[in-house]
Amino acid sequence: MAKEIIELIVNGDRYEVAVEPWRTLAEVLREDLNLTGTKIGCNQGDCGACTVLMEGRSVSSCLTLAAEAHQREIVTIEGLAQGPEDLHPLQEAFVEHGAVQCGYCTPGMILSAKHLLDHNPTPSEQEIRQGLSGNLCRCTGYSKIVEAIGAAAAKMAPAGEGE
C-alpha cells in the first residue's frame, strides 16, 4: 500500500505527486498542489463545491481517487481565467450579476456551468437549472447564478447565435 507517483496535468501544468491510493483528487489538489480554490463542502459527492473538469467533464473531485486522475487533464477554478486580471466570461458574469455571496459554492458552480456551456452553448433557463443539479448553494437561492450563466452564454455565443 505504498505511495505511487502519479502525473497530473492541472490547468495545463504538469505535476508529479506521490500519493497514497486512498487519497482523493480534492485532497491532493488542495493539500499537495495548494490549489485551494477547489472546496470541500460535504466530501460525500452531494454538494458540488469540489467540482473540477477532468478530460472536459465535470466530476466531483471528492469522489475521484487521485490515482484515477493519473495523466488526466484537469481544470480547476484557478485555471479558468487567462490571466490574473482577465476573467472568464462566466467568472465576470458571476461577479456582475451578484451570483456570489459567501462564495464557497462558487468555484464548483462555475465549473459546472462551464461543463454545461461546453455541451450546450445556448441553454434554456430550465437546462441551466438542470445543469446545476449537483451544486448546492445556501445563500443565493440560485436565481442570480442562473441569471449569470444565461448572461455568460449570451456573451460567449458566436454572433447571431446568442439570445
Binding site: 490549489l35 477547489t38 477554478i77 465576470e92 458571476f94 451578484g98 456570489v100
Partner: peptide, 21 residues
Amino acid sequence: ASIPRLDGKDKVTGRALYTDD
C-alpha cells in the same frame, strides 16, 4: 446602487481564502 460585491473577483477565481485553505 447595485454595486457588485468587492470580494467577488477573489471568490470567482478561487483566490479567496477560507480557514481550511
